[in-house]
Amino acid sequence: KKYKVVEVKENKDGTVELVVENENGEKKKITLSKEELDKLKAGDTVELK
């Protein structure tokens, strides 16, 4: 499934919390490390299994 990044929030521990949404409007929260996030920004599309 493809999800669009709608919100990006940095946590104090250096991880980043993303809120992503698919075309049905379903939202998910995922947490990434700073390194994983470096290639993402709001409006990008991510694929989740």
Rank of each mutant, 00 (worst) to 15 (best):
T45C: 15
G25P: 00
V8I: 12
K27V: 11
E36D: 12
N11E: 05
V6I: 13
D13M: 02
T15G: 04
D44S: 07
N24C: 14
L48S: 08
K28Y: 12
K9F: 11
A42E: 13
E26G: 05
K4A: 06
G14V: 00
K9M: 10
E23Q: 11
K27R: 14
G14W: 01
N11S: 06
K27E: 05
L37R: 12
E47M: 02
I30E: 00
L32V: 11
Y3K: 04
G25S: 04
N11W: 05
N22D: 14
I30S: 01
K2E: 09
T15S: 06
L37F: 13
E35K: 11
D38A: 07
N11A: 07
K41R: 11
D38H: 14
K28S: 13
E21M: 08
E23F: 07
K4I: 14
E47A: 01
K49F: 00
K2G: 04
K41I: 10
E21V: 13
K39F: 07
K39Y: 08
V5H: 00
L48W: 00
K9H: 13
L32M: 14
G25V: 00
G43V: 04
T15Q: 06
L18Q: 00
K49N: 15
K12Q: 13
T31L: 12
T45E: 15
L32S: 04
E7F: 05
V20A: 02
E17W: 06
D13F: 03
K41W: 07
V19F: 06
K39I: 10
L37V: 12
Y3T: 07
K9Y: 10
N11R: 06
V16N: 02
E17M: 10
E7H: 06
E21P: 00
K4Y: 09
T45H: 05
N11Y: 07
L40M: 08
N22C: 12
D38M: 08
K1R: 11
L40C: 08
L48R: 10
N22K: 03
K34N: 08
K27T: 13
E47N: 12
E26A: 06
E23G: 04
V19R: 03
K1E: 14
N22H: 09
V16T: 05
K27F: 11
E36N: 13
V19M: 08
V16Q: 03
